[in-house]
């Protein structure tokens, strides 16, 4: 029973981290309706930034969020202007943005490979290897912190989306671009902002997971798949969906990982992903589902 609770607790912590990784992806899909295949690679960029800030300047990963988030925000703005914007509103936008972002991901991965080689890199903070005993369950300090930050980020984002004027504009654009334009909302501005925040958030996630995971040039590929599974599971474009999806996959992977191998655990979540794609299209299409 105790190990069962332990697995559940670890699963929930992992799920929170996964949700944090996915939330930017979901935001971008929900509002701009494009699939960013380079999502995981921006996570990698965030992780490397954190790694170097820590090893070179002794900046704690959690403090690093204050730098990494704005840096990736700006990167996101530039990428949107250079790559995404030229593709919007043209024929085959959906397919072309997928391909362009896949190409971008390839660029980021190989840039990292050229700059930093394919070595695995990790950092040792004062939290490394420490656990906290809560009610008999041993929880990794790094993961617990990550989970807490995920909850905080989710609450802040929720507040911004639901209770600010800007958030209302973002929601309006996500529901009906034409109507939003007619109401005087600058759709292009909302798009670039959303894209930037989405990229900033995944960079922030990179900071948070750096104390827990190794970084290497293709680390993004693993998390990319994971993020897509989570987002589709919860409903592409649904904000709360990402949280729920993250928790489900965190639990599934933790359980399957205990009972089978890590590879089979991933196969299991991918099969789940396919089934959702097939049988619950209204879920994945979110609000776009129609008669």
């Amino acid at each position: 029973m105790e190990t069962f609770l332990q697995i559940i607790a670890s699963g929930i912590l992992l799920g929170g981290i996964y949700a944090l990784i996915s939330v930017g992806l979901n935001l971008i899909f929900g509002v701009i309706k494009i699939v960013n295949l380079a999502h995981g690679d921006f996570l990698m960029v965030g992780m490397y930034l954190t790694f170097f800030l820590f090893t070179l300047y002794k900046i704690n990963p959690y403090t690093a969020t204050l730098l990494v988030f704005p840096i990736l925000l700006v990167v996101g703005l530039v990428i949107f202007r250079l790559i995404i914007k030229p593709l919007l509103g043209k024929s085959e936008t959906e397919v072309n943005t997928i391909l362009a972002s896949a190409g971008l991901g390839y660029v980021l991965q190989n840039l990292a490979l050229m700059l930093w080689k394919s070595d695995f890199r990790a950092i040792e903070t004062n939290l490394t290897g420490k656990s906290i005993n809560i009610g008999g369950m041993m929880l990794s300090s790094g993961r617990l912190w990550a989970f807490i930050i995920c909850v905080v980020v989710a609450l802040v984002l929720y507040y911004l989306l639901m209770y600010t004027k800007l958030g209302a504009q973002v929601r309006a654009v996500s529901q009906d671009t034409d109507a939003a334009t007619l109401m005087g909302i600058n759709v292009n501005m909302i798009y670039s902002l959303t894209f930037a925040v989405g990229i900033g958030l995944v960079g922030l996630a990179g900071c948070i997971i750096m104390p827990i995971f190794n970084v290497y040039p293709t680390v993004g590929t693993y998390f990319n798949t994971l993020a897509f599974v989570i987002v589709v599971l919860g409903g592409l474009g649904s904000f709360t969906g990402a949280l729920v999806g993250g928790l489900i996959i965190g639990l599934v992977e933790t359980f399957a990982g205990v009972m089978a191998s890590a590879e089979l655990a991933q196969v299991f979540s991918l099969l789940l992903f396919l089934i959702i794609l097939f049988v619950k299209p209204e879920g994945i299409l979110g609000k776009a589902a129609r008669v």
Binding site: V107, L111, L113, S118
Partner: peptide, 13 residues
Amino acid sequence: PGLHLLVYGILLV
């Protein structure tokens, strides 16, 4: 290492 793939990515975009 990876330059040729980097070029691929840029060409694709």
